[in-house]
């Protein structure tokens, strides 16, 4: 049994709080995700004007990846493996409302582009210049067995050196993100049991 891969670091964003490697690094009383994410960006003094153009799913994925990748060296070959339950439905609903009234029919290209869940992977790739493997999956709930198996495969087949994994679920003002980096370095063994435990925190 056992594994030679590790969880290098991890991040949880949920209910107005951000935890990095199990330690709370930010909390806010903001009622909406919009306000919460903006406050978090200011708190970590992240200068990135494009953030304000993103939809909520991308903002959630961006914040988590920012905290995990910013101090990582040699991250060029970090693959992105993301999943959630609601796909891009949050933005889909928003876009649908822009086309449902024929008297006030102005479909927005800036909204439409985010009606695909993998756009958040594009945002992270651009930010960190990751020309790497990336894919977005949808499951009914966090699926540690799949995430474990696919991340192991990416590294073992040398398609990537590291994998940034993310469960980024968001619909309306309900959200939960669990992101972690899988690599050959770290203290926490990369196992299904550990992924479950960290996700439940």
């Amino acid at each position: 049994m056992g594994t030679s891969l590790y969880i290098e670091n991890y991040c949880i964003i949920e209910s107005g709080k951000i935890l990095l490697d199990g330690v709370e690094v930010f909390s806010s009383d903001a009622d909406s995700f919009a306000d919460f994410s903006k406050e978090a960006l200011r708190h970590f003094t992240i200068q990135y004007p494009k953030f304000f153009k993103m939809d909520h799913l991308s903002k959630l994925a961006f914040l988590g990846s920012e905290l995990l990748l910013k101090d990582l060296s040699g991250k060029e070959n970090t693959a992105l493996l993301f999943a959630n339950a609601s796909s891009s439905l949050d933005t889909d609903i928003n876009y649908q409302s822009s086309i449902s009234d024929k008297e006030n029919y102005f479909p927005s290209p800036a909204v439409f582009v985010y009606t695909l869940p993998n756009i958040c992977l594009g945002e992270i790739s651009i930010r960190h210049q990751l020309k790497t493997e990336n894919s977005f999956f949808i499951f009914g709930a966090f699926n540690p067995e799949f995430m474990f198996g696919y991340a192991e495969n990416l590294i073992q087949t040398q398609k990537a050196q590291r994998v940034l994994c993310g469960w980024t679920e968001l619909l309306g003002d309900e959200y939960k993100a669990f992101l972690y980096v899988v690599s050959k370095d770290g203290k926490i063994a990369h196992t299904i049991e550990n992924l479950k435990a960290l996700y439940e925190n």
Partner: peptide
């Protein structure tokens, strides 16, 4: 097979 991002632009 390979699936690699441009890291250039979202559209």
């Amino acid at each position: 097979d390979g699936s690699i991002n441009d890291a250039n632009h979202i559209s």
